[in-house]
Computed example of a mutant assay.
Amino acid sequence: MTSFVVQRNGRAATAEELTPLAFAGYAHFTAMQVRGGRVRGLDLHLDRLRLASMEMFGQALPDDRVRSYLRTALKAGPDDLSLLATVYSPAGEFTAARPDAEPEVLVRTGPAASGPPGPLTLATVEYERVLPAVKHVGEVGKTYFLRQAVGQGFDDVAFVDRRGRLSEGSIWNLAFWDGAAVVWPAAEMLGGTTMGIVRRQLDRLGVPQRVQEVTLADLPALAGAVVMNSWTPGVAVHRIGSVPLPEAPSFLALLHRAYQAEPPTSP
């Protein structure tokens, strides 16, 4: 019988082990969609966990060990599922980490997800995440501003930095289309794994792409916009703030084609 699991370091997590984590917020994670027991961009997920561990804890677990924890969790579940791998230090938070406090891994699986159908409207708010290159937990601002946006009649939120540049969404990367090339916003942000997959596959497909600063004033000159994350390589966006954006079905199809071109691998 298959089931979804919560495991700590490759075995079932106990309530005693989970209790202190429920009251802690110093950790990082990666989220992935598993289809047929395989994952696209596994190397990017492992890179993310390794680099974030070095940044937050000063040490990282070997990739082979992390992969073994992922395999153990996948064996217990269906072929298609969502997986969240969280890395934390047993030293906890609000204290200087002990040099010997090796990071530990919490893996949770759940039903497969594919994201909203769209198109979406995004409110804008000036906000810059702490450690923006790290996918860390305990980010109250993202949920707070998302709920504020929904309360204002939007579907989600896009962040604008102090220089007026669009950076990312609450749980999304942003991507734009100028009619011929994919435009990635230049700002401090989290480099998403799906974003990484799409960028390298667009290169292989010979599709032009560039990184540039994008402000609200730049939007009327663009030909389309999407958000993407581990759920999906693209959900159409038809308004950011008060600025409407045209439908771009060919852009959306291109991003999905690039994502599908990435061969999935088994942990």
Rank of each mutant, 00 (worst) to 15 (best):
P103L: 13
D100Q: 15
G115M: 08
S89P: 12
A96W: 07
A96L: 14
Y88K: 04
T109I: 05
A123P: 05
P111T: 09
S114P: 10
P103W: 07
D100T: 15
G118W: 00
A96N: 10
Y88M: 01
P99K: 11
E93A: 12
V105T: 12
S89Y: 07
L122K: 02
E93R: 05
L122N: 00
P99W: 05
S89C: 03
T109A: 14
E104Y: 06
A113K: 10
T121W: 02
A123K: 02
P99Q: 05
R98H: 05
D100M: 10
P117C: 06
P119I: 01
E102A: 12
T95V: 15
F94N: 04
S89M: 04
L122V: 12
R108S: 08
G110R: 04
T109P: 11
T109Y: 08
R98A: 14
T109H: 04
L122M: 10
D100E: 05
E93Q: 09
L120F: 03
V105Y: 05
G92C: 06
Y88G: 01
Y88S: 05
P117R: 02
A97F: 15
E102I: 09
V87T: 03
S89H: 05
Y88T: 13
G92T: 00
P119H: 01
A113V: 15
A112F: 10
P116Y: 11
V105D: 00
P119Y: 00
G92W: 03
A112P: 03
P103I: 07
T121E: 00
P111G: 10
Y88A: 03
A123V: 15
L120E: 02
A123R: 08
A101I: 07
T121P: 03
P117D: 15
L106A: 02
E102S: 12
G118Y: 00
P111S: 07
G118I: 10
L120M: 12
E104V: 02
A113G: 10
G92S: 03
T124S: 06
A96M: 14
V87E: 03
A123Q: 01
A97D: 06
T124Y: 08
E102V: 15
A97Q: 15
E93V: 11
P99Y: 04
F94M: 14
R108V: 10
V105I: 11
L120H: 01
T95H: 11
V87R: 04
S89V: 14
Y88P: 01
F94T: 14
D100R: 15
P99H: 14
E104G: 06
A96G: 05
P111C: 14
V105R: 01
